[in-house]
Design a protein around this nucleic acid. Structure first.
Lengths: 233, 233
DNA sequence: GTGACTTTGTGCATCCCTTCACAAATGCGT
DNA sequence: ACGCATTTGTGAAGGGATGCACAAAGTCAC
């Protein structure tokens, strides 16, 4: 097997997670008419260190020119290829509450390699009603979507209570990639990939650091004071 | 300084990022009337390994009982304390498009230690209109919100184009924790903490693995075939 | 009270990721 | 043609997170 294919199969997860950021930064540069960029500049635009950027890109192959940098269009193409974005991936959004509707209205899908082919909901009383120009479809359509439209990715935008049930139905229909917006852990077979987006988790992480920051101000008190307070717990 | 305080200051980032998940799992258990849980059970509920869970919890202190497990309420309280959720953090959401409105309607804030005290938008033509029971306020109110209402966390739900400007205004007003939903990198002073939530990034990571999976099916072809295809690039 | 059993908390080895630092490679000016 | 300036790609080192395995510490039955 060639080194290139071997390399493509072995991209570390941490690198993969940063590639979308690089791609976005490159798209911005291209829109601003910039055709060449150094690792230092691109790293700054993507918010990472240049060494990290170069190491990440080295996993894709050698697409830079020493002494010059990277050609913006070429590198964007290579990253798109590595991420599998040369094709448009069919996506279905399940759960047409506030969040589901907001996601359905989001215009960033098509520009980033995705195509929302269906909106679904478990609640039959809203199935058939329109969201934007689309009609909400019943969960029973999932099988046909996978079979006929090559549906590959499911987005769960339901409350936590229904999320596991929706996940089960997605898996049963043959979907093996799930993006979960519900604040709960999904139990799925090991060959199904789940990624979670949870605003509450992110806010709580921010709260931790915010608290630590204000807590540090309190440390201007003596260590003895701090221990007294601790005993008072 | 006591070992406890030292420990609380030194919780690894990776552990902190998992604490919200444990807290949520514990809340579920409590709602189901379960008062005691082993590391094995809690780890399963939170989707991590039990060794990882125990190591994470050990950073907070020693709140388990050997041979028994953890008391659900007690552990939930300790994690809440560590995360700084004993107080309600005032949050402002900036950007009242589809996403901002969905976030404003989200009921999970209050149950998780946060309080949305203001909705803002840069566009004066929608300032003053109502979202739910709240009125959209102008960006100029930020200073007063920080000063009078101790606003600490800002949520950016604007398009990418306006995100940096909004971030600048938040920072200028004194906000030092930002949750960014816009698909772009924010440039902020080093003492300001930014966390990013980006659905496109997550979908692209899923696409990578999905592509890798289908690519592996192709490897049933001979390695020679694969190399020929590669030359054709 | 005692012994068997259960589960925590943690030292240790391992793995992965990040950072450093520099040789290799390229363009450019002269 | 040649040396200088620049930037990539990558070994090697360092740091942090993960998983293992077990001693320590508790419960429970009797």
């Amino acid at each position: 097997m060639s080194a290139d294919v071997a390399a493509r199969r072995g991209i570390p997860d941490a690198s993969v997670a940063r590639l979308p950021g690089y791609l976005q930064a490159l798209t911005n540069l291209a829109e601003r008419g910039i055709s060449s960029v150094s690792s230092e500049e691109l790293a700054a635009a993507a918010g990472v260190s240049s060494a990290k950027l170069r190491k990440d890109l080295s996993h894709l192959g050698s697409y830079g020119v020493r002494g010059v940098g990277y050609e913006v269009d070429r590198l964007a193409y290579e990253i798109s290829t590595a991420l599998g974005l040369t094709q448009d991936w069919p996506v279905a959004i399940v759960g047409m509450g506030n969040l589901g509707r907001a996601l359905a209205a989001y215009s960033g899908f098509s520009t980033r390699g995705f195509n929302v082919i269906a909106l679904l909901d478990r609640d039959d009383s809203i199935v058939g009603t329109a969201v934007g120009e689309r009609r909400i479809r019943p969960m029973g359509d999932l099988g046909a979507l996978v079979r006929d439209d090559r549906l590959a990715i499911g987005v769960i935008a339901t409350p936590a209570e229904s999320a596991q049930d929706v996940a089960d139905r997605l898996v049963e229909a043959g979907v093996r990639s799930i993006l979960n917006f519900a604040p709960c852990v999904l139990d799925v077979p090991s060959d199904v990939m789940v990624r979670k987006v949870d605003m509450s988790t992110e806010l709580q992480i921010l709260a931790f650091h915010e608290q630590r920051r204000t807590g540090e101000l309190d440390l201007t008190r003596s260590a003895a004071d701090a221990d007294v307070e601790e005993l008072a717990l």
